[in-house]
Amino acid sequence: MDYPLSVGVYHSMKNFYNVHTIWLLMVALTLTTYAVGQLGFSGLGVIFFVLLTTLIKGAVIIRDFMELKGVSLIWQLIMYGWLSAVCFAIATAYYISV
């Protein structure tokens, strides 16, 4: 059966997205964060970049490791809300201090 290209890409992505690749993604993001620190990068852009990688890792843990995908909206709001609020507050505190 012929699928449109977009469907094929979607299925490929879906097959690729599993706990093993999620773990690899988090390892890669952690090494990126470490490299940022090791290379001595600083400044608002770097802070936002590192916080963005943190946000991605946190969201992946909540969604795929804690398995909150598909649970009641209130619990998703609590968990993603906590993660977003903490990252936003940290970003704001650093932004103000620059």
């Binding site: 620190g37 909540i62 993660l83 903490v86």
Partner: peptide, 22 residues
Amino acid sequence: ASYWHMVDLVWIILFPLVYIIR
């Protein structure tokens, strides 16, 4: 498992906050 992931989640924020961003 849920509790263990929470411990991981907290460290995911703690590490860049205390060790990296400046």
